[in-house]
Every structure is written in structure tokens, then in C-alpha cells.
Computed example of a mutant assay.
Amino acid sequence: MISTALFERLVAAASRAPSADNMQAWAFTPVGDGVEVRLEPSRVLPTDVNQMFAWVGLGAAVENLVIAASKEGIAATVDYPPALALQAAATTSLDAAVTVRLTHGGREDPLAAWIESRETNRARYDESPLEAATLDELSHATGEREAGVHWVSGAAGLDLMARMDARSTYIRLEHRPLHDELFDILRFSRRELEQKRFGLEFEGIGVPYALVRFARLLRYPSVMKLVSRLGIGRAVARHLAAKLQAAGAVCLVTARIAGPVGYVEAGRAMERLWLEATARGLAVQPHGVLPQYLTKLDVEPDGFTPHFAEVMRRHREPFAALFPCLPDERPAIVLRVGRAGSRPARHTVRLPLEQVIRVSEAAQR
């Protein structure tokens, strides 16, 4: 049985992981000599197709827990229940748990030193391409996770990625279900973010400062319709996506296994790559809209209007050309990687431990 103090240290490290829109859709339960990690349904985004982003985030949290355990002199193994491994993501119970089993022994993972300092950096990066050797070392850092890592660098590839990302971001701003969901989880002041402890701080996502002034009004359809007519939505999308053109490289992490286990493994690989980048003084920013919407087009094509569905269909071929993956690989997350001249002025807020810890019924009795 692990001690309460050790369990809380491991959960604190796990909770430092990145998650889509900072939703932190995870929960931790101590079980004997291990920890169960499952999704927290109240923080899974309704439009997250197959809960892919929630599972990727959970995978990153699991990897942090494994790495943090090594610092405590503990070896960790990750077990997936048959129900989670065999079922397709769309039919998997959100209560299915990944179990991290802990035993004494093992060596400290060098990445443990970088869990606290890993961050999302949305600044503009140096446009100098990252060296091939650096990309190889970042890929190698993912270890034996069941995930693929694919790189694009050079002006032509980055420009194409930026254009596809801009069109996908525009869909999120314009398509009513996606727009409404986005504005439900945006926090329009630091005070609001610190009260909620999850979600995105509007000012921190890198939109033009002028929009921050009247950001709250954009949640209303009439205002958004006017903004759309004026072309402001497209301009904002291009502004946010343009940073992809100023990257040392762009990375696609893929899932090599169907269903939740594949996305968890992709999240584990993503976190290791991100921590290795942090150790090397490199900045990282996730761009998830494009892989998610390409997946949504395959799984839930009716989730788009006919026009937006056609926009995404036009992205399939160039995306596949940029990232020639194996036939059974599925896009999970895109990362912008490079050298930034500055660090974020504010760190992302996290939920307190008591809100991400679940005590089992047996422990309560």
C-alpha cells in the first residue's frame, strides 16, 4: 500500500501534464500498490470526438506519474484493462481506468527534473530549422511507446501547415456547436481562471490585444455573425496559425493502436518528447484542431456543416503528404517546436489535488 504522502506527490506531478484547453480531464485513485487513472467526465469536452484529446491528456498525466515515481526509487508499469484495450473509443466507458503499478527499485528517469518547468509557449519562435540530429533525439526520447513521431520543417511544409491550421481554427470559431463549447471554457480574466482552475485564459492564447477588449461579446451569435461578415474571424485564425510558419519544426504524434489505448500511448509519447525538448531549452506549443477535425470527419461527418466538412476533406491529401504515416496510424496531436526568445509571463493554473483525487468506496468504508 503506497503512503498518502507518496500518492499525493505522484498525483501532483501527474497533474502538471498538458491537456486540451487545460481541461485536466483526469482523476486518480490509490489502489493497493498502484494508482488508477481515469477520465473525469465533467471535464471531457462534448465535441471531443472519441474523447481523443481527453485520452491523450490522460496519457501525458500517466507518463508524468511513471517518471515521477522513478525519482522516488520506484519502478512503474502501466496496465490497460481488456475493456479499454479492446473497445473502440466511441463505445468505451469513461470510467475505465488505466492502472499504474508501483514496485520498489529502478533508476531515476532524467526527464523527472523537467516536469515542473515544462510549459506551453505561444510566443513566436526563431525561424531557423531544428537540426536533423535534434529531431532524431527528440523522437528517440519517446521510448517504446506505441506511437509514431513524424516531422516537418522547411518553409513550404510549415506554410502549408499554417494554412490548414488557420482554416481549421476558423471552423472552431464559426461553427456554432464548436464556438459555443469554446466560449464555455474560455476564462476572460486571470481572476476567473483562478476561481475555476481549469479552462483557457483568453488573453493567454495569443489573440490580438484589440479582441481581448470585447472578447465576452463574441459569445453572442449576433456579434459573432457581424465579426464573421467583417472577416475578423478569418483574420484571428490566420494570426493564431501564422506562428506555425515561424517554427523550428512541426511534429505529428500518432496513435498506432485503435481506440483509447492508442491515444493514451500517444499522450505518453508526446509528454516525453515535450520534456526532452524542455531539457534542451526548446519551446513547444500544441496545435490540436487539425488532427481532431480530420478524425471527426471520419467518425462524425455530420458534426460539420456541409461547407465545413468539404473544407476538411480538402485537407486530407495534403496532410497525408506532409506526414506519410503507416496505414494503421491515427493523428493524435501536432506540436510546434522551436527556439523562443521569451517564456510565458504566466504559468497555467491547475486544479487542487482534492479535485482530481477520487477515493474508492472500499477506502471510505
Results as ranks from 00 to 15, higher is better:
M1S: 13
I2H: 06
A13Y: 00
A14L: 03
A14Q: 02
S19F: 02
A20M: 09
Q24F: 00
A27C: 11
A27H: 07
F28E: 01
F28G: 01
G34D: 00
V35I: 12
V35P: 00
V37L: 03
V37Y: 04
R38G: 08
L39E: 04
V44H: 06
V44N: 05
F53L: 13
F53T: 10
A54M: 00
W55S: 02
L58E: 02
E63V: 05
L65P: 01
E72G: 01
I74V: 12
T77D: 14
A88R: 15
A97G: 02
A97R: 08
V98R: 10
V98P: 05
V98I: 04
T99W: 12
V100H: 06
V100E: 01
T103S: 14
H104L: 13
H104T: 13
D109H: 13
R118Y: 02
E119N: 11
T120M: 07
A123K: 12
D126M: 08
A133E: 15
E137K: 12
S139R: 13
T142V: 14
E144N: 14
R145D: 05
A147L: 09
S153Y: 05
G154E: 09
A155R: 15
A156W: 10
G157H: 07
A162E: 09
A162T: 07
A162H: 09
M164E: 08
E174M: 11
E174G: 06
H175F: 04
D184L: 11
R187C: 10
F188M: 03
R190F: 06
E194D: 09
G199H: 10
E201Y: 12
E201T: 05
E201F: 12
F202E: 06
G206R: 03
F214L: 14
R216W: 05
R219C: 07
S222Y: 13
V223C: 03
V223L: 05
M224H: 11
V227W: 12
V227Q: 11
R229G: 15
I232F: 12
G233I: 01
R234F: 10
A237Y: 07
H239L: 09
L244P: 00
L244W: 07
T254C: 00
V261P: 08
A269I: 09
M270D: 11
E271K: 04
L275P: 09
A277V: 03
L282C: 02
Q285F: 07
G288D: 05
T295H: 11
L297R: 12
E300H: 07
T305V: 06
E310A: 13
M312I: 15
M312R: 02
A320E: 14
L322G: 06
R330T: 11
V334Q: 14
R339F: 11
R346K: 13
H347T: 15
V349D: 02
R350M: 02
R350C: 00
L351M: 11
I357L: 01
R358S: 00
V359T: 14
E361S: 12
Q364K: 15
Q364F: 14
R365V: 15
